[in-house]
């Protein structure tokens, strides 16, 4: 039995326009809505697969405001069994702060007899893009870490993790306990069933306050890149534009054959 902890973050939905808060310290998601990043949806799926295969328990963890409970319920509806919510303003926490908070949860759960053999995170958060929380967590806990893989399985106390490297498809085999950060692309996140949603509503969520005061993200401010002036050259409408398009292809030298 493998007990898995999977960490998710409530992030603004970046499929629409990005708006910043007035103080420039965070992305304002009130208009665009919020979601879980694609990498983390895949991490949740992998947690469900690993625990589904050997009868272990998958716990989903988030650090975020009250509304982040939505991300926990979504994960519970697709295969997680338990949930922990560190209630805090995520934008006040730097990557090292977040790693310390996750480690504090892991240690406290362990002291209470709930081990987390495998910890899964997304490779990078869709909003802050720090690319380091999983690795910092591994050092906090003194565990090995595999970074940026998209397939994960566990057998005989060893996690096998696979993903794309610069020279091909790479495989790691690491004894548990371990930390693994996940990229989208290896598994398809499942859709929640009605039964899954009903079950998720009934799970009691463990609520916690942060273990320590955050040092902060060293952020001066967020800003939006200046919109590039549109100097698009319209080549025409519909099929009639084809000769103008092929003229451009010739000019750019991509038609040579």
């Amino acid at each position: 039995m493998t007990n898995v902890l999977v960490c998710v973050k409530r992030v603004p939905d970046s499929t629409s326009e990005v708006v910043l808060t007035d103080d420039g310290q965070a992305v304002d998601g009130r208009y665009a809505g919020f979601t879980t990043s694609a990498h983390e949806e895949c991490a949740v799926e992998l947690a469900a697969q690993v625990t589904g295969a050997d009868g272990g328990e998958a716990t989903v963890l988030t650090l975020g405001d009250d509304d982040a409970v939505e991300q926990l319920r979504s994960s519970l509806a697709v295969g997680c069994h338990a949930a922990t919510h560190v209630v805090a303003e995520a934008h006040r926490f730097g990557p090292a702060d977040v790693a310390r908070e996750i480690a504090a949860v892991v240690r406290e759960h362990e002291a209470a007899g709930r081990s987390h053999d495998l910890i899964l995170l997304g490779n990078d958060a869709a909003d802050s893009g720090d690319f380091q929380v999983g690795i910092r967590l591994a050092y906090e806990l003194g565990r090995p870490v595999v970074n940026g893989v998209n397939q994960v399985s566990v057998a005989d106390g060893v996690v096998t993790a696979q993903g794309a490297g610069p020279e091909g498809h790479e495989t790691y085999r690491v004894p548990l306990p371990a930390v693994v950060t996940v990229l989208e692309g290896g598994v398809e996140p499942r859709y929640p069933s009605v039964q899954g949603r009903m079950k998720a509503k009934k799970v009691a969520i463990e609520q916690r306050t942060p273990a320590t005061e955050p040092a902060g993200p060293d952020r001066v401010r967020l800003l939006l890149p200046p919109p590039a002036p549109s100097d698009v050259q319209i080549l025409g409408k519909g099929a009639d534009a084809a000769p103008a398009v092929v003229d451009v292809l010739e000019k750019l030298g991509v038609l040579s054959r």
């Binding site: 910043l20 909003d127 802050s128 001066v220």
Partner: peptide
């Protein structure tokens, strides 16, 4: 670059 390049962060 943050938010996939849609926003920028100044960081000390």
């Amino acid at each position: 670059q943050v938010v996939g390049g849609a926003a920028l962060e100044e960081m000390r």
